[in-house]
Design a protein around this nucleic acid. Sequence first.
DNA 1: AAAATTGTTAACAAAACCATAACACCAACC
DNA 2: GGTTGGTGTTATGGTTTTGTTAACAATTTT
Lengths: 239, 239
Amino acid sequence: MAYKVLVVEDDVTLQETLAYNLARQEYDVVKTGNGRTALTLARKEKPDLIILDVMLPGLDGFEVCRILRQEMSMPVLMLTARAEEIDKIVGLEVGADDYLTKPFSMRELMARAKALLRRVELTREETTAAQTDQPPKPQTAVLTFGNLAIDDGRREVRLNDKPIRMKPKEFDLLQFLARHQGIALSRDLILERVWGWSYDGNSRTVDVHVRWLREKIEPEPSKATRIVTVRGVGYRFDG
Amino acid sequence: MAYKVLVVEDDVTLQETLAYNLARQEYDVVKTGNGRTALTLARKEKPDLIILDVMLPGLDGFEVCRILRQEMSMPVLMLTARAEEIDKIVGLEVGADDYLTKPFSMRELMARAKALLRRVELTREETTAAQTDQPPKPQTAVLTFGNLAIDDGRREVRLNDKPIRMKPKEFDLLQFLARHQGIALSRDLILERVWGWSYDGNSRTVDVHVRWLREKIEPEPSKATRIVTVRGVGYRFDG
DNA sequence: AAAATTGTTAACAAAACCATAACACCAACC
DNA sequence: GGTTGGTGTTATGGTTTTGTTAACAATTTT
C-alpha cells in the first residue's frame, strides 16, 4: 500500500516542489502551510511520515513536532534554515527523527524520506502480524507453491529449484498475484498495484504479461492451472 | 593537557555541531565523515575518545570500531539511529564503550563523553609507565567465496590467494555487495550506503564501478557470475 | 611541479523491455 | 447457429535500461 506523507511548509513553491516529487514516488501526499492545520491533518490522516518546516506562521515546527510526539509515533523529518537549531531538533526537546538544512537537494531529501519509511515498513510488518491472526505472510521470505518458488530477496523465481529468467514487470506481477493467492483480482486492481496509479494505458497489457508468465511457469500455458482466468473479472493465482 | 576527541560523522551539519560543542568544552577536536579516514586519523592522532556514527559511507561504524578495538584502547562512543543495533554495539562483536540513539540531546552526549574521558584519566595514570610493546594483531574477518576472499581487516581482496589491487571505492562496494550476498540491491540503496546520503550524482556511477570490479574478480567480465545484474533493480552478489 | 592514481561524468552502443495493435479464439447468450 | 463481448496470442517498433569506453577533474604521490 502506498505511503502517506504529510508536507508542512509555508513556502508555496517549495511545498509544491516537495509534493510533486513525493507524488512522483507514488506516495500519497497531504499538504499544508499552517502549523495548526498540520496537527489536525496529522490526527485525521495518520500519515506514515511528516516533513515539517521549522519556520511556520502561528504554531512553529518545534511545537508541532513536540505535540505530535506525545500522541503518535510516525517519523518526522524537519527542515530548517539554521544550523544552530539542530541541537534542538534531534534532541529530546523536540525529537525529530531526521533533519535537513536548507538549501538541500531534492535527491537527498527523497533518500532520507525513503530511509525513514523503510523503518516504518519494518515496524509495520511486526505489528500487523501481531494484530491479525491470519497466516502471517512474511513479505521478505520466499513464497513457495509446490515446485514454484518466488524469492523476494534475490528477486528470482525458481521452478524445481532452477532459476527462471523473469523480466522486471513479470516478476512484479507474479509476486503480486502470488501474494494474493486465491483471490480473483481485477485487471484494474492489478494495473493500479503493479503498474502504479499513474499508469494510463490499456488493460489488455495485463493479459499479455499473464501470457508471458504462463509461458514460464505453466507446464501447458494454454491450460493454465496456476494463473487462472476469472471471466469478467481478471485473474486469480492458485498455488 | 586537553583531551583530544575524534568525531566521525558523515552528516556535515551534525559533525559541525558536535565539533562545536566539544570545542566549547576545551577539547581538541579532529573530525571526518569517512570511515577509512577515521582509521587513519585514529592511528595518527591517537585521540582520547572517539565519537563514532554507525551509518557511514564506505566502512561503517561497526567496522571502524571493530578494527580499532584490535589495535588500540581508547573509548568509543557510538551514535546510532536504530535501537535494534544496540546489542551489537555494546556486545563483543563491536565492543563500543557507550552508545546513544538518535535523536539525542547534546547535553546528554557531552555528559557521556565526559564520563568516558574520566575513565581515560584513571587508566592513563595507572599505565603510562607500563606500556605494551605488543604490536596490534590484526585479526581477520574474512568473507570467503570459493577462490575469492574479502579481507576486512587487511582491507584486501584475494583471488586464489593472490592479492588484487582495489581502489578504495571498489573495495567498499565489493564489501557492501558481499555482505548482502544473495539479495538484489537497488542502485539507490547502493549509492546511499556506499557513497553516502549526501552524494548527489548519477546512479550510473554504480555501473561503472561494478564494471571495474567485474574486471578484477570475474574470469569473464562480460559474463558475470559473481556480481549479477538484476534488471530493473540493480545488482546482486552471488558467492 | 610533474606524474600517477582515482572518482565521476558524458556519450554512444547494445540489449532488454514493454505497450499496443491486430487478429484469432472461445464461451455465453439469444 | 450466429452474434457478441471478453480473452488469447503474436509481432513489432519505440522506449528504457544497462554496458562500455574514454575523457575529465580531483586527489595523492613522487
